[in-house]
Design a protein around this nucleic acid. Sequence first.
DNA 1: TATTGTTATACTCTATAACTATA
DNA 2: TATAGTTATAGAGTATAACAATA
Lengths: 148, 148
Amino acid sequence: MDIIPASPLIDPVSHRLGYLLRRASAAMMADLAHTLSSCGISPVEATVLVVIGANPGCTQSDIARLLGIKRANMVPIIARLGAEGWVERRPMNGRSHALHLTEAGMGVHNQAELRMNEQEERFSGLLQGQDAAALRAALALLVRTPEE
Amino acid sequence: MDIIPASPLIDPVSHRLGYLLRRASAAMMADLAHTLSSCGISPVEATVLVVIGANPGCTQSDIARLLGIKRANMVPIIARLGAEGWVERRPMNGRSHALHLTEAGMGVHNQAELRMNEQEERFSGLLQGQDAAALRAALALLVRTPEE
DNA sequence: TATTGTTATACTCTATAACTATA
DNA sequence: TATAGTTATAGAGTATAACAATA
């Protein structure tokens, strides 16, 4: 049950839900960053590409709300996706832009999605006897948090 | 299943394990930070207090290995716990120090542990019909990641 | 030689406040 | 008045490299 079995210390925290969530999330995010690095894209950028791919014409504020990212922090993300030629910004009504994937953007999108699927399967394979669907359902319940 | 039901967007990511882990971890950590703020302590500091409480005489390098924190990043954490008078550093062998909780440190430790237990129960209560023990077991499997 | 503790530093992520221009 | 996009900035958290003292 201890996360670091070789440690000479008693581990009084690895049974805690918050601690386990943090460590598991960090492990999977670090793995995903490495998995996606050959695509030249970060986990957040890949996620934004996937959202635009599923919602052609959405705005960056739409994406911010969906992903829980502050509006201000979307700016450098969209700027980079635009600079790479992966995302096109079409003026909508003067104050917002409709976002669309370019041809190159679709290519990166598809590559990134492939690797994300591969990673998902790899991590699901670690769940010896555990139900991956039940894990996802439980996590989704925790996201609806009494904060904000 | 969508995390933000009010969004006009199709949500193509909230079924992904990595995404759910990240959102759930962020939600619980933000809640914990708020829960512990009345103790004047951060989640990481509280975790370190708990580790020292369970392992009197351990070194900060021991704690770093257990919690997956870099040695260099332990310095300001231990410095703050020492400056508050919660942790005492007793010279061991010239290059390392044995860490112990002071009386005041035990008080903060107990308060923080109470609130962490309360938070744990509150979040476990969100798991409608889900098995909290199974969730923890599944998360622990994910922490052992093929990286590094 | 390897380890502990430390300094300095840099990079990412996140958060706020304020501004503009548009609706 | 509210929203979209932006700028600037500040604070965490995390990473590396290097060094001194010690084992």
